[in-house]
């Protein structure tokens, strides 16, 4: 390849490069031991509250859809720099829900009530992934809390 073509392609490759943490996020999502699970796709994301009300609660609501089930979570900022996750499975069922974070953080587990509601509290910020133990199991992509 002549030097001009090489320069052009090199510069084009530098336009809009992937975010530096993309590999890390993908590898974290894939690190789940077994992947015999349905993949839930991010369907919707919205923010509530504002930075102006610094004393108020800032929340983010994220919905993931899989064929068998939807998982909606609201991430609530706590004053101590941790977050609380209020979740809802639809259709509702009393299922176990795991929240994975990068090691060495332990897997956090909650059990939804019959209507599908669950809460996982005192969660540190960072990468996280949810696994719902239904039949089939449902796994979300990694998200940044």
């Amino acid at each position: 390849m002549d030097p001009l073509d090489a320069e052009i392609l090199e510069r084009i490759a530098g336009f809009d490069p992937p975010p530096p943490d993309l590999d890390e996020r993908v590898l974290f999502a894939l690190a789940l031991g077994s992947l015999e699970a349905e993949v839930a796709h991010l369907a919707e994301q919205s923010m509530a509250g504002s930075g102006a009300r610094s004393t108020g609660e800032r929340t983010r609501t994220i919905t993931f859809d899989a064929d068998s089930r939807s998982v909606m979570i609201t991430v609530v900022e706590r004053p101590d720099n941790l977050v609380r996750i209020d979740g809802w499975l639809a259709p509702g069922a009393a299922l176990r829900v795991d929240l994975r974070q990068p090691e060495p953080a332990p897997v956090r587990t909650a059990t939804a009530d019959a209507t599908g509601r669950f809460v996982i509290d005192e969660v540190p910020h960072g990468l996280a992934q949810l696994l719902v133990h239904g039949d089939p199991r449902v796994v979300t992509p990694s998200l940044v809390l």
Binding site: V26, A29, L35, A37, V39, H41, L42, P141
Partner: peptide, 10 residues
Amino acid sequence: VQTSWLELLR
């Protein structure tokens, strides 16, 4: 991108 990888592994 990560959803595609998850689908691939599945």
